[in-house]
Computed example of a mutant assay.
Amino acid sequence: MIWKPCKLQVKANQTEDELGNPTGGEWQTAKETVCRFTPWTDGQISLEGREITKNEQRFVLPFPFPSFPECTHAMIDGIRQEITQKIDLSPRYTVIQVKVYKR
């Protein structure tokens, strides 16, 4: 198994602009851990649809779901990715699904 460093992050100290949208702020690390890429299964591809599986990836984190911190993004391989789903695999693991931003 190849485990990569992972930082779970949230943006803090944001203010609102005239339209009520959050702006500014700085990224704070809620938890530092490791993660492992998990490929989609054939069943998930047929259920979720091709666009979801093409644009999103899943990573396993080695701690239980109840200890998952309040965060919105994961920094993996130096790239900040938005967390779209959290999956409980207690008592040992948590899975996060993130949007992939390909360059």
Results as ranks from 00 to 15, higher is better:
R50A: 13
P91R: 09
I76H: 08
K11Q: 08
F68V: 14
R80W: 02
P22N: 13
V34L: 08
R80L: 02
V100W: 06
W27G: 08
F68A: 10
P5K: 06
Q57C: 12
R50I: 14
W40Q: 06
P5H: 03
K11T: 04
Y101H: 11
E56Q: 15
Y101L: 13
V98R: 05
Y101F: 12
T84C: 00
G43W: 09
P66L: 09
E82L: 11
I83C: 03
R58Y: 09
S67N: 01
W40C: 10
Q97T: 08
M1L: 02
F68S: 05
G25I: 05
K11C: 07
T72H: 08
M75R: 02
R58V: 13
L47R: 06
W27M: 04
E48P: 01
R92N: 06
Q97D: 01
E56H: 11
L8C: 06
D42Q: 11
T23R: 07
T29R: 02
T15W: 03
T15R: 15
D88N: 15
N55A: 13
T23G: 07
D17L: 12
Q81R: 14
E32Y: 01
R36W: 04
Q81S: 15
K31D: 02
D88P: 00
E16M: 12
W27E: 02
F37K: 01
Q85D: 03
E32P: 06
P62I: 15
M75W: 05
E32C: 07
Y93R: 03
L47K: 11
K4V: 13
P39D: 14
T15F: 02
